[in-house]
Design a binder for these strands. Structure first.
Lengths: 269, 269
DNA sequence: TACAAATGTATCGCTCAGCGATACTTTGCC
DNA sequence: GGCAAAGTATCGCTGAGCGATACATTTGTA
């Protein structure tokens, strides 16, 4: 019940962390919980804000912040007005990316794909009900970049998500749909369970998934799933472009084979 | 004395964390210390390995691993042969990048710079004796990519490091030199204190710093510092290319003004 | 197929790490 | 100059988490 973690699109159920678990170290959960307070803010936080946002008393927040600061996981803001996450976090980012075999192997494949398609290419990894971006090779014209490592999107309404669901059982798909907090991110977002299932079936038939403006106005994206040796979908490769330059049919005809090829190169192993 | 953290190029002194500090929460330090065990490995770790590498007993490691797993900061390896960092780490990566004003503002500037120079462009941030990469826009031909967010290099022997040192006092520079673990990463790495000081003076005069093959054979890199409003250097912008295509003089003449311009755009604020 | 080595899992009583309440100091803003 | 809110410091009590140890399960090898 305590130590609920949230994020942009629903970080998974750290919720039901059983307090009766004798191996569970509460203090660690608090530290992570506290760091997660930054998920919901766009500006530095004061100690009291941190305390209330992470649901602990001022004393506890004080101790945890103090400790995390010593270790470099929290810093004072540039002009000393509040706390922000510390640079030491990036050390662990590196470890994660390095030690994830999919990410490690994906690099050259993504580069090659990016070179041929000349659109934005993403690699995302599944985590419960969402996909987390692990790499992004942006397209030339995109001015707003965002290496946004760590950004996440829901499974139920994205090309990558449907590519993943295409490799799950119907029961698992239904489960994802049921547990997802479905809402219209854009007017085009598909939230109706039956329509989602239809899109998944479509993805199964085609071998790739398509999403039109469901996350971002004007964006078209196709994706193919990345699979573990046993067939479990682990994530997806996305190719995202602009509807001002492409119509859906041309886009698919042109890029679907390339996406499939790239995913194939990563899957056989 | 306990809870020393290490990384590729010397993560700073979490070493001298005073155990007498009444606000210091040991359990949190252990968790971070344990996660840092992955800094020194290229493969998944077993519980015992984690225990010994992070200098704690098996029981402690068990509890901490258990807790971090519940929370998603550690996972089992894909084929269940050991532990690896968990995807939840990326949520905090995102927070760090988002809430760092320099990184947030840098995106369009770096993109623009990358577009004009067509070489690899990096943004690095200072952390003690090292620079940590926060963004990398790779050059076209680089096959081995590596969004390597979180990779770090020493200050004393890199273009970015010297750009940073150029904006520090002589005393501070000497301090960095003294505390750095200087060794020849390549045969060309400059490790002699006096020569390093000379390179820093050179950087002060030129307004940019240059490094030739000091980290990687065949690599040429120039960098300009990113400054806080009060003049403190916070990091650097790098432009890295290959000596098979450029000689140093041409490279500087061509790219130094562009690097300076980009840094200037970020510094005035 | 059986053995050995190593990995992950579970249990338990003791004790000091860390809890929360509270009070003090500093900073910034009318 | 005064008030509000931020950060810092102190302290005694107690149960969270400590480490030792024993059990179970997997893996590699003879």
């Amino acid at each position: 019940m305590r130590y609920v973690q949230r994020a942009e699109y629903g970080v998974p159920p750290a919720t039901s962390v059983d307090d009766g678990d004798p191996l569970f170290v509460q203090a660690i959960a608090r530290a992570m919980q506290l760091l997660s307070a930054f998920h919901d803010t766009g500006k530095p936080l004061t100690l009291n804000e941190i305390a209330s946002m992470s649901g602990m008393g001022k004393s506890a927040a004080q101790r945890v912040v103090h400790t995390l600061r010593q270790l470099g996981y929290i810093q004072r803001d540039a002009d000393d007005r509040g706390y922000v996450p510390g640079i030491r976090i990036l050390d662990h980012t590196r470890d994660y990316l390095r030690l994830n075999p999919l990410v490690a192997r994906a690099s050259p494949v993504l580069m090659e794909l990016r070179r041929t398609v000349r659109e934005r290419v993403d690699l995302s990894l599944r985590d419960g009900l969402r996909l987390v971006y692990a790499a992004r090779l942006q397209s030339k014209r995109e001015t707003f970049f965002a290496t946004l490592v760590g950004q996440s999107v829901p499974i139920y309404c994205t090309s990558g998500g449907r590519a993943v669901m295409a490799h799950l059982s119907d029961a698992q798909v239904d489960d994802i749909i049921a547990r997802s907090d479905r809402h219209e991110i854009t007017p085009k977002t598909i939230t109706d369970p039956e329509k989602i299932r239809a899109k998944v079936r479509e993805a199964r038939e085609n071998g790739y998934a398509l999403a039109l403006e469901e996350i971002l106005q004007g964006e078209i994206a196709i994706a193919t799933a990345l699979l573990a040796p046993d067939g479990t979908p682990l994530g997806a490769i996305h190719i995202a472009g602009s509807l001002s330059e492409w119509d859906a049919e041309t886009y698919c005809r042109r890029f679907a084979p390339l996406a499939a090829e790239a995913a194939g190169a990563l899957n056989r192993f």
